[in-house]
Nucleic acid binder design. Structure first.
Lengths: 192, 192
DNA sequence: GTCTATAGTCTGATAGAC
DNA sequence: GTCTATCAGACTATAGAC
């Protein structure tokens, strides 16, 4: 157990705590108990809680981008969208948490101001990627035609974020399926 | 200024504070200062913060239902949906807050357990109403055909909730328009 | 690096005067 | 009904021993 290990444990548990309880819903005491150290030791790595927050957000964002961008370019738009939804379903882990992005966006007004930009960047990265997939869908015809892929991407991303929150409220991960099912049902209906 | 007046002020300000900062993001001190009394006086009306929360939720839910159900039955489904979006846009007030339902759902794991059922009821009431409107849309053809109105209603409601959160993040109420624009764009495209 | 000890602040909540 | 005064507990954060 060297320095890196404790630091990484702190970031990983902080991410999970933010996803389940929100930034203001956990304390250094909670975090310390989870990995069996004292609160003062956390301050060695992250003098202020704000420092921990920034590190947690940046690591999460980098890891999320790696997951999304590692999708093979050879997939159809429909396949990419399905994999994206699968990633979002994994992220909530048994319907106990929500994406770090939406968890923090919900707490926005009580957060240190410096994270707002990072959160906006995270949102925009997701929306831009989704817009690209919807544009591909217009070309490869694996998805229903979208007149405004940008607006549709913002709307779909919002639906996924909202679905994560309601999945937790109803303890039912199936709610993550609704947005994509609804998007696809237009095609199903057209084919019927 | 009789009892009712102070009590009503407390509920109104509590609702606004929950919508902007979350249940754990404001204190009795904040609330007392807003209406010019001392914290001890709040305890006269609401001995525990939990009591205030329940009162705020129930009043909000009743008022919301009145607004939604007061829509003339003679409207087309498309008109009802537009009015619903307008209500949701008003509710966030200059993009500083979100609906009380999504604000609390986001804080769910740190809330007293007794509100979970009320929140679920609030969600279901909205989703049921929206499903009815989408079914009407299938009949009056003012909206694109929905193969599964229930799933589409859950998806649309989730999109509105998510859009409220991102509207605050980007300080841009226009994000509330995306879900309905996307829903309607299918028809626009078909007409083009 | 991790600890003990503690400072200083905020929190929800209570007792009792008026 | 509203106040003053106060409590016990939790919180972030710091100083300094080891």
């Amino acid at each position: 157990m060297n320095t890196e290990s404790t630091r990484n444990q702190l970031i990983a548990h902080a991410q999970r705590l933010i996803q389940t309880r929100g930034y203001n819903g956990f304390s250094y005491r909670d975090l310390a108990q989870l990995i069996g150290i004292k609160t003062a030791s956390i301050h060695y790595y992250f003098p202020q809680k704000e420092d921990l927050l920034l590190a947690a957000v940046q690591e999460y964002r980098a890891r999320w981008n790696r997951h999304v961008e590692s999708m093979p370019g050879s997939l159809t738009a429909a396949q990419k969208l399905q994999r994206y939804v699968d990633l979002c379903t994994e992220a909530i882990g048994s319907a106990e948490g929500v994406c770090l992005g939406s968890a923090l966006a919900a707490d926005l007004m009580t957060l240190p101001g410096c994270v707002r930009k990072d959160l906006q960047d995270f949102y925009r990265a997701n929306e831009t990627w989704l817009a690209g997939v919807l544009e591909q869908g217009n070309r490869d015809e694996s998805l229903p035609e979208q007149a405004d892929p940008q607006a549709a991407a913002r709307s779909f991303y919002a639906a996924i974020q909202g679905a994560q929150i309601s999945a937790r409220l109803f303890k039912n991960s199936d709610r993550l399926k609704d947005p994509l099912d609804t998007l696809n049902s237009i095609e199903i209906h057209a084919a019927a």
